[in-house]
Simulated assay, not measured.
Amino acid sequence: MKKVILSAALLGLFLVSCENDSPNIDDTVEDFQEVQIDMSDFSLYVDQDDIAGKSANSIEKCVSMKNLEYRLSKNKGLAKKMYDIEYNTRKAIALKNQGKGKPGGGNGGGGSTPTIFEGSITIPVVVNIIEQFSGQVTQNQINSQIRVLNEDFQNNNSNTVGVPSEFAGLVADVDVAFVLAGVNRVVNSKASWGTNDAMKIPSQGGIAPTDPSSNLNLWVCEIGGGILGYAQFPGGSEATDGVVIGTNFFGETNAGGIYGKGRTGTHEVGHWLNLRHIWGDGRCNRDDFVADTPSSDAPNYNCPSYPTVNCRTADMTMNYMDYVQDDCMYMFTAGQNDRMRALFVAGGPKESFVN
């Protein structure tokens, strides 16, 4: 797949948009002048066609970036919207690091230029199940998926004790709680739903999302092609907003094997909260836009030994945004935490979850 190339005209449009969207407040203008935001590395596509994202046994863990490419082709305004979200995310993190703004509180700060949202976040979850026969997805799977999400986003994964000392000081408690808000089920014998969001469209046999401005919608179905799951990044249409997980990889289930411990959900919700794959979907010069994660040039699979060195640094293979098996991923970083929390500030794409 091609790398995004921003023409001079398009880049100018982005910059004009950012200027026009800025509040007309003197201290906000001052913050813009004092904080330099570098967007030169921003990209919306994977870097190389040969980064297939498949393990040796043909499991394709995540196709979020492929789904993004599909969505970009359908929505000509999506690239600009995601650029703006990224710009504001970087601005919020830069202001926090420079001690500007007034972080905290339900309004994401209270200052004219909010920084990172502080405080506990509760996200209601609606599970939309498209099963080939009634009861295929059990209540135990549903309950275990909610529990695993809470463990991972609250730093209660028992395997975190295995984080190497090099990364131990970076482990974050994201302080996000997930609560089950509802379950929708339909029976449909379709063998494969693919990755173009058909499972979200009732006219195609799917289930429409439930109020995505205040709920995380999870779809559980047979995706096909050995795919575990995918998510929509912030900025996309509400009609398709949420996460899709393959039936055998939703919650705790023996059918998922080494990917049957619920961590596909954690990985995909990370994407939904604006995290990229930890290797940046490219070679050593491509980044995941998080300062405290090391550079790498490809995903890791199975359960790698430490250190696994690429791009002259040890890979953070235990990060939830890599492709290792479920038992071997057990941390988010402080930088990833900041990136996720930047979505919840006043005016952010997920502000409605906290206000």
Rank of each mutant, 00 (worst) to 15 (best):
P304V: 00
D297A: 13
V290A: 01
M331K: 05
N310Y: 11
N300E: 13
D292P: 10
V309A: 05
S305F: 07
R286T: 04
T308N: 15
P304R: 10
N285F: 13
A298E: 12
D288H: 04
Y301F: 11
V290R: 02
D287Q: 12
Y323E: 01
P299Q: 06
A314T: 03
P294R: 14
F332I: 06
A298K: 03
M318H: 06
F289R: 09
S296A: 14
Y323D: 02
D287S: 12
A298G: 13
D287T: 13
S295W: 10
V324Q: 07
M316T: 11
F332M: 06
M321W: 03
D281S: 15
M321Q: 10
A298L: 05
Y330K: 11
Y323K: 01
Y323T: 00
Q325F: 05
Y330D: 03
G282E: 07
M318Q: 14
D315M: 13
T313G: 13
Y330G: 02
N300P: 08
C284H: 12
N285I: 13
C284D: 15
S296C: 07
M321E: 03
Y323S: 08
G282T: 08
M331R: 07
T313S: 14
S305P: 02
N319I: 01
N300G: 14
P294I: 04
P294S: 05
R312D: 15
M316W: 06
Y306I: 07
P299W: 01
T317H: 00
D297I: 09
M316P: 08
T308Y: 12
T313P: 04
V309I: 15
F289Q: 10
D315S: 14
D292G: 09
C284W: 08
Y330M: 12
C303L: 10
D326Y: 00
T293Y: 00
D292N: 04
P299Y: 02
P307H: 08
T308M: 08
Y323C: 06
M318C: 14
D292A: 11
P307G: 12
S305W: 04
N285Q: 15
D292C: 12
V324W: 01
S296P: 07
